[in-house]
Design a protein around this nucleic acid. Structure first.
Length: 376
DNA sequence: TAGTCGTGGTA
DNA sequence: TTACCAAGACT
């Protein structure tokens, strides 16, 4: 593996970044940074948590909403967890939201509302791991920590044509980044590497012809950049099946309950569902309902999760006000603000319950697939 | 260490 | 349609 001169590499990368950096809501410009400004650690942290395994495009609207509602870490710490989960609904990986709130409370309680300034101390906080601790310390506090995310893994494996598959190659990549990260402008260096990965050194069809660090890159010489990073094969995703039960009151309210605080969709809201069986065959039927009623099957929905695909039968019933199980009634105008994950909004939609103004049903409800499934 | 944990966009 | 993936953390 040929050695890269860190000084020359940084100079080329940062010169490119000064011109071609992305303008993002949680950033300050290289020009402001050069003038001595530093970004608000709260904003850096908030954005980094949201960006975990999530695209910039998806994050922007959530980031703006969170910042408007909770302008500081103290504001966020004072919020009820349910409000944070409801605001997070739709962004996925809900443990992030629970840890976000726990972290805000820890920063408030242990550090008086000011984020600690080193990667090592940041990493001890909930939801902040290897990558995020290094990113915050480097971007907000100028610590030259080794920042390694998916973009940077891709860039480095191409620079050195690393054949070792991920995640085994991770220690090697981190060592190389530690060697390349400059003492001056480490925050810009990290963000420049990520911007390079996001805009030039892309997973498919990388733009090697206009890459500022092409002279340092091994993979591009053999026109094989796209082959890296080598990754271990993934197992096929299994199928699971379950049923969801949408109870409706005469005034249109829907019965919801809260899922257990940990695990899949932990702490989020849902219409009552069965457990999601590993069995993908057979129908469950109204006998699986949380309480007896005149359940009618109104359709089914499919949803892909990271490690399995789920099919949910959707059952609906018109019921009275009193149910013997724990939960609450949510009126039509309140549903949009509930902490409903996307899969559960699909369920409500299948039961012809508008989950937002945008989905307000027309006078004649559109029924998709409804005719196919009569009552039992 | 390998499995768990969402979602929407894209080839 | 399917498969993969996007600024990972936690157990």
């Amino acid at each position: 593996m040929p050695t890269i001169d860190p000084t020359a590499f940084s100079a080329a990368l940062l010169a490119w970044y000064d011109i071609h950096h992305r303008d993002l809501p949680w950033r300050i410009s290289p020009r402001q940074r050069a003038a001595g400004a530093r970004p608000d650690p709260y904003r850096v942290w908030l954005s980094e948590i949201m960006l975990q395994q999530t695209t910039v495009a998806a994050v922007k609207a959530y980031y703006t909403k969170f910042l408007a509602r909770w302008p500081s870490v103290s504001d966020l710490a004072a919020a009820p967890e349910g409000a944070v989960l409801a605001e997070w609904a739709g962004l996925g990986y809900y443990a992030r939201a629970r840890n976000l709130h726990a972290c805000a409370k820890a920063v408030e309680a242990e550090y008086g509302g000011r984020f600690p300034e080193t990667a090592a101390t940041l990493k001890a906080l909930p939801g902040i791991g290897d990558y995020t601790s290094a990113a915050i310390a480097t971007i907000a506090f100028d610590e030259p920590a080794a920042v390694v995310d998916g973009n940077i893994e891709r860039v480095v494996t191409r620079l050195h044509a690393i054949e070792t598959p991920l995640p085994r190659a991770k220690p090697l990549i981190k060592a190389e980044i530690a060697a390349l990260t400059p003492k001056e402008r480490p925050g810009d260096f990290a963000q420049a590497m990520m911007d390079l990965g996001a805009t030039i050194c892309t997973p498919t069809r990388p733009a090697c012809a206009i890459c500022p660090v092409r002279p340092f890159c091994t993979a591009t010489r053999t026109a094989e950049a796209e082959r890296y990073p080598v990754k271990a094969k993934k197992a096929a995703v299994p199928e699971r099946r379950g049923a969801a039960f949408v109870a409706r009151r005469p005034d249109g309210a829907v019965f919801l309950r809260k899922r257990p605080g940990t695990g899949m969709l932990g702490g989020m809201s849902e219409p009552p569902t069965t457990n999601w069986s590993a069995r993908a065959d057979g129908a469950l039927g109204a006998s699986a309902a949380p309480f007896p009623s005149d359940w009618r099957r109104v359709g089914e929905i499919e949803h892909g999760f990271t490690h399995f695909r789920l099919t949910l039968e959707v059952w609906s019933a018109a019921v009275g006000d009193e149910l013997a199980i724990e939960g609450w009634w949510s009126k039509p105008q309140d549903i949009a603000a509930e902490a409903l994950p996307t899969v559960m909004r699909k369920v409500l939609k299948a039961a012809e319950i508008g989950s937002s103004e945008a989905e307000r049903p027309s006078a004649v409800p559109q029924r998709r697939g409804r005719r196919l499934h009569g009552a039992e």
